[in-house]
Design a protein around this nucleic acid. Sequence first.
DNA 1: ATCCCTCGAGTTCA
DNA 2: CTCGAGGGAT
Length: 787
Amino acid sequence: MSDMTNPEQRIAELRRRIEDANYRYHVLDDPAIPDAEYDVLMRELEALEDAHPELASPDSPTQRVGHAASSAFAEVRHAIPMLSLGNAFSDEEVADFVRRIDERIGREAPVFSVEPKLDGLAISLRYEHGRLKQGATRGDGATGEDVTANLRTVKAIPLALRGEGWPDVLEVRGEVYMPLAGFKAWNERAMKNADKGKGDKVLANPRNGAAGSLRQLDPRITARRPLAFYAYGVGAVEGGELPDTHSATLARLREWGFPVSSQSTVVTGLDGLLGYYRRMGEARNSLPYDIDGVVYKLDDYAGQREMGFVSRAPRWAIAHKFPAQEQSTVLEGIDIQIGRTGAATPVARLQPVQVAGVVVTNATLHNADQIARLDVRLGDTVIVRRAGDVIPEVVRVVPGMRAPDVQPWAMPECCPVCGSELVRDEGGVVYRCSGGLTCAAQRKEALRHFASRRAMDIEGLGERYIEELSDLGYIDSIADLYKLTLNDLLEMKRRADERDGTTPETVKGGKIATRWADNLLEAIDHSRETTLERFLFALGIQHVGESTAKALAAWFGDLQLIRRLPWPLFKRVPDIGGEVARSIGHFFDQPGNQKVIDELLERGVRISDTHPPDAKLRGGLDLATVLADLEIPKVTALRAGQLAAAFASADAVLDAPEHAFVTAGLPADSARALVEWLADDAHARLLSACGEALTELDRLVPEAAETVAGPLDGQTVVLTGTLSAMTRDEAKSRLEALGAKASGSVSKKTSFVVAGEAAGSKLAKAEQLGVEVWDEAKLLAFLAGHE
DNA sequence: ATCCCTCGAGTTCA
DNA sequence: CTCGAGGGAT
């Protein structure tokens, strides 16, 4: 096709189409052609320009890949200084700003052009006769650096102006920034490649990413960075006119090919400004770029001229800043917290600092690896952020502020609570206290977990009471909760008050208050009536959370059965594999745990929903499956099947000589491995126990399953946000009653997401994956129609 | 062996 | 909410 037309025309045509695509993508936010097609056009243009060097032009989109490095940046003096803006941190300061305008030029409710304040790098672009001639950084406002070659690589910046009516000389000002998606993708790739020892620099944050990219001496590096641009104003103008308001100028810039924030708009008076501030504050976390506030500008240029300037900032504009989401503070110490499973988590003790509206003093450091990665040391100045706007975390260390001779931090060797050794998980990153339930911290955490809402739900038994009851020796195990008496509680309280030197709380007449103790006993009593699912969860078995506890309860139905089942049988439950099954078996193998369970039952804990095992177990209850589940070396599912065909029972396998396995069809090495495995007494007992369990289950499991089809059978749902008519938990159980499976995270397998008010990242993920989203109204209508 | 999806566990502050 | 790791499909 291209050889039909003359190359000059074709080049012009290609350049126009490519820049058109850039414009639609970056300015109109409405991509016109797919990436692949864009690449094809680009390659054709490159080929043509190579073949006809005389037709090359600095305005060509091919030039956006950047040329060879220069040695330094030239200085650029700004014809009109690039001013900084005054800052407002409170509504009052904004009110003062509006009042000053009224006082000075007599306008009570002025019209403002408002826009988000992007966290990027301010630049100036000089166009002469519609062509980009020079781009510069803001620098100190009077003088910046010439970064034209770098700016040419930013696709959102037009190399030539579109439309018509532009002045002979036009200086456009705006912000170069790094969109969050681009930043994330860049860093993910950079980190992946960093592991392999090659690759790109990991960027500290989008702002630094943008600034650093523009200061590259080699524009080819800049070209690869995901940079974007928004125009927010003009500087020098010669040989032409602009509209007489700022908002109209922005509209004009948009026509000429500049991206202008779609969030920029016009509002009136103080109320308008503050309303915009609130709206943007809410939208902040869902914007595709970082903003640190909003900017208010008096819209009409006549008013701006009248207002004038103070020193280096205009009096007609102000930046209204959001509370910082990132702050620096000093790391005063690193404490070790011991969790329920003994996991030792380092927690940063920080000099109190305001982050996104709350004072933060603690932040998790996750684990020792994370500390090593960040190279955080005691006394360091660190950057703290609230991840997802909730949980504080240490992001990085501020370099160059470390005192000399501070050593790297190391995980202590012993548990700070009980002194037992801290042992690193094999192949894992967490260290655990090896003290088990002899460790007071683990005992307390176990109690806290047992009493928690989703477990036994003992209302009022919070951290404080557990601490006191445990420290003063009233409860050692979870079973001890059920033998507490009113006297115990009152005595405990008296001793705790004495110890802490606090005066006892009294009611009139000087009598000691007992109401709290009555309530607590009542709550403990109330918790005696429970379900198998809650009970299993409350025991705090490693790897058994709510979901696994629920599955165990549903499949086996009876605590007495579960507590003596050999571990391989647990693998019959979907989503329970070797690791989890062993962990459950191991828990019930401990005589101490069995004793606690006996005590709980003796002291009145009653599981109300005991039932026979689920019929779905049928099918998995044969010798072949059990032999495969035992994880005997070299005995695969296939070999297990051969054995089951040849032997009538587990006991028959136990008694068989090695050659009988070979006769059964096993290769010599499998037979050998099996004999060796069986030589271990513990293994032999396990196999025998499995045989017995099979026989018993066979008797218990009902013949056929009679399932009622629910309307949501096989569907996976995710709930997010706040519902008004019911709690999320209630919605969850009602959906489950209709056959749905409620999950915590959105994936492409998710059938639909129920999104209430203020839904966050899960809703975003659903939209990104194109997963169906229900609002509360739709949920209610569905429930009404199907329950 | 490798991917993707879930689950478990740990965490902060008002 | 986030990270790590278990389970299961491929």
